[in-house]
Amino acid sequence: MRAYAIHAGLLAILLALHFTLPAYHHGNLARVMVLASYAMGYNLLFGYTGLLSLGHALFFAAGMYGMGLGIQHLGLSPAPALLLGLASGAVVSGLLAALALRTSGVAFMIVTLMFAQAGYLTVLYFGEVTRGDEGFVIQQAQRVLWGVDLSAEGNRYIAALLLFGTCLMVSLWLVRSAFGRVLVAIRENEDRVRMLGYDVFAHKLAAMMISGGMAALAGAAYGLLFGYVGATFASVQYSIFPLLWVLLGGAGTVLGPFIGTLFMFYLIDLGSDLTTAYMLIAGVALVLLTLFAPQGVMGEVRRRFWRELP
């Protein structure tokens, strides 16, 4: 119960910030919350199940394009478009899982990387439909969900908070459930889990689909809330970002992805004021984290202060 209280506390703070933050940071925080939802999806697979994917941009983009193309070409309204995004993510991650889970370790990383790259190139290849690198804008009129205009600052923040809160609570519940504990056990010692009678493949498949689904939902929401869909979100960079955020915040902690996304977002935001080479910050952070703090921020907190931190 204490765990739920702490996480609900974070949501309460975020709600309070809605009324107090200046416009610039208010907009940033909305973005951070959606991206953190993406990171939480990534964390379920990487942090809890121990599968390091280098291809999550594929799922993020599947959601974003499922939603965006649904609105643009099928004339869907936002709610079914979001669902279409979620469904595309689940299907794509299920298919990729069925193939990639036949490998492990380094091969799994490369296979996911390659499939995501193929996905990115596919978006470019069908440029007539996807508008390729240029992307397309989702008009304000198409972003009205149940009478709420999602392009308005305030509504957008609340929508982002709802998404974030849902992902946070689902993550928390999941990792404390029997299913989640088996995932952690798989991360620790896969062979032993199998010899306790659990179907390891089925668990990994489910984990990858939930992770991919959450990433896709975040991608769909990102496109809908900020009104833009583009190929950048399918590129390698967007596979590396959630890894970076989760490593920084603490892999295998429920709060870690949010902390990592928040820090890195502002770090890169500050950096891009100084130089166009802002990805340098991401590179340096990746190296320093792997070298000196593989546990991340919340991992340290867990080690030092509260061993039961979920």
Binding site: M279, G283, A285, V287
Partner: peptide, 8 residues
């Protein structure tokens, strides 16, 4: 992960 960082 470290060589990805090195890449950037």
């Amino acid at each position: 992960v470290a060589t990805i960082g090195l890449l950037y």
